[in-house]
Write a protein that binds this DNA or RNA. Structure first.
Lengths: 194, 194
DNA sequence: TCGATCATGTAATTGGTTACATGATTGC
DNA sequence: GCAATCATGTAACCAATTACATGATCGA
């Protein structure tokens, strides 16, 4: 779903300025999509030209005039179409995965370190998600909450998934330890350990 | 990780033409990242100008000349740096989630249909992933296989996650049914059912 | 003879980002 | 006095896509 459709989605629930739309975005979509003014303002301009939204300028003294956008019939139609458009399954663009693919080129001790760094960053996002729970619960409708809970499960799953890779890499390391202690003790049997 | 670094990663394991690199991409990264010639060829050209790869043209009669790219010392260094660069956690750009957020604007019967459509498309990807398992097992090194198994778990998790949303939406529908049959039978007690 | 495979590339477009530029008001 | 909030926008850039353009060779 592109920015335009999402802007329309917000405007379905009330007229707003670009500034207010940006706020809605950051609050609602914080964990799965970011938007900047640099995309919002040009998008609104274009949508006005296309007749998807109507513009009403509120003159203010001193501060720049507020440009309040209201969705039009055409805009409503466009939004509803976007909402039911055929799915194009998107591939997870995952930097960690791209790197893991080439981990053979990394020094053995760096592999675990890199994987752990990644795990920690996911855990932090998960924690932040928890922190906004009450905020979301207050504001969100049924489906927006479903959205949030999807996010919670998504990051929980991700933590589990990356953890299992970390575990594999740990095993590799301790196998390495076993092999080197075997070398040291000339083939004596030893269990896994530090 | 950008295309350039990934191209370098492949070139670490041997010199290749753009055409061959594209094949490597589609085989290895099929389920989490796609690349087209439109990005590969310009990237290679730029990397040659930057001295990250060396170009050797193999003249062929008839067919266009093969341009074989070989990674340079600078390229190797750049790749290794990319492999250990600090993480920027990326947000899952998820169309389904963006739509779900606005599901209140969809007709009730369409909600379940849309969610199911999405679920099916994920299940299909998961199935395709299973289909290439033996192929991957044959070609992949330890880390590339870890990568694949991450993908398998990722899609299994996703199926579970979206399924639980579908379940919630189904409950909404049957609650709706209960309410309407209650209305019909003027408050008589009824269980959930079709 | 037709489709797949080998092999290269450009041009236009998409959909964004970051940084820059401006400036008033309000609360600590 | 300074930071945050309100409020608008542009310009340069980036990373990538799609569609277009070309053409030989090989196997069924």
């Amino acid at each position: 779903m592109d920015i335009k459709s999402m802007l329309l989605g917000f405007l379905m629930r009330g007229s707003m300025t670009g500034y207010e739309l940006k706020k809605k975005f950051t609050i609602s979509f914080a964990f799965f999509s970011g938007v900047s003014y640099g995309s919002i303002y040009p998008a609104l301009k274009k949508m006005e030209q296309e007749g998807l939204v109507a513009l009403k300028v509120e003159i203010q003294d001193g501060a720049p005039n507020r440009k309040v956008y209201t969705i039009s019939e055409a805009g409503r139609k466009a939004f509803l179409e976007a909402l039911a458009a055929p799915y194009v399954i998107e591939k997870p663009k995952n930097t960690f995965l791209s790197r893991l693919f080439f981990f053979a080129d990394l020094a053995p001790e760096e592999r675990l370190a890199e994987a752990n760094k990644h795990l920690e960053s996911i855990q932090e996002v998960r924690k932040n998600l928890k922190a906004v729970e009450s905020q979301i619960k207050g504001r969100a409708d049924r489906y927006q909450y479903l959205c949030y809970s999807f996010g919670v499960r998504y990051y929980d799953d991700l933590v589990r998934n990356v953890s299992s890779i970390v575990r594999e890499l740990e095993n590799d390391e301790s196998d390495q330890d076993v092999r080197s202690s075997k070398r040291r003790s000339q083939g004596a049997k030893k269990g896994r350990g530090s």
